[in-house]
Computed example of a mutant assay.
Amino acid sequence: MRAAAIQLNATADVARNLERADTLVRAAAADGATLVVLPEKWVALGDDDAMRAAAQPLDGEAATWACATARELGIDLVAGSFGELVPGEDRTRNTSIHAGPDGEIHALYRKIHLFDVEVDGVAYRESDLETAGDEVVVSATADGVGLGLSICYDLRFPELYRLLALRGARVLVVPAAFTLATTRDHWEILLRARAIENQCFVIAANQIGEHPPTYRSGGRSMIVDPWGVVLGVVPDREGHVIADLDLAGQDRVRTKLPALANRRPSAYRWPETAEVQG
């Protein structure tokens, strides 16, 4: 299987972002990718007003484009994430869809962990605009390869990825808009850790550059193999990275170093409450 991660510099201009996404996805498909992953918030990235204005229902322009493009190109397309308007809800959802080569939505994932933090003096409060999801989602490519869906800040929660692997994921996808500072210091380490501990491929598509009003993303979109080896990285610009996923090699890793099979769930006792200080 040949896979690609798309790196995009999204702004508040929805039309521009759709055009760039279309160009980059077609370039990846022309390079032979049959699985393509877009970044988080590829439809629009800006302040809360811009994000509200760009939010769309599941039958809106973004999802319609993703399904039509996946069908036309004959690919599995994980359309990063976009602000989803949900009937009856005041807040949007940060939603990723997996569109198959049949032009249908095969899976829908709503970001579980919302980014309410401060980085480099900039406050991020996704919960002011968005409602968190509560469902772990595994999909499958047209060839039957399990896809574990996640979005950005989810990367810091290893229990999610273990569940994805135990539910059959062989490839973990991470659409993201990781900040410049956290990309520099944490991004690759976290991606390689999730790959190694779950013996999965990781396809991580990050935003790059400046976004309104004062946001900056760090790029370095990459594909990592189940041994933790980085197979390729996008340079510091819009573009894509391509890699062939050796599924037979993944089987060998899981057989010779059977960490998943050696788990002892009966010994894992979660505390009833989490005592976290600081």
Rank of each mutant, 00 (worst) to 15 (best):
R167K: 06
A274I: 11
P271L: 09
G121M: 09
R2K: 14
I97M: 04
L149I: 03
A4N: 06
L191H: 07
V174N: 11
P57C: 07
W42V: 01
V241L: 11
M1Q: 03
S217M: 11
T95E: 08
R52E: 13
T11C: 09
D251C: 05
R20Q: 13
R52N: 12
V241A: 12
Y153H: 14
R52D: 12
I6F: 08
H211T: 11
A44P: 06
F157K: 03
G74D: 10
R220C: 12
I203N: 02
Y215L: 14
V253H: 06
I242V: 14
Q277P: 00
S221T: 09
V136H: 07
V137E: 08
L160I: 14
D13N: 15
E197A: 07
Q7D: 09
L147E: 09
W65Q: 03
L163G: 10
R2G: 01
A12G: 14
T179M: 06
T179H: 05
V253F: 10
G80A: 04
P271W: 10
V173F: 08
G146H: 05
A79R: 00
N94E: 15
R91G: 10
I151Y: 01
D116S: 04
E130F: 15
T34R: 13
D120A: 15
A169P: 07
R91C: 05
A132I: 01
L77Y: 07
G60S: 04
A33D: 09
C200L: 04
D22R: 14
E118S: 08
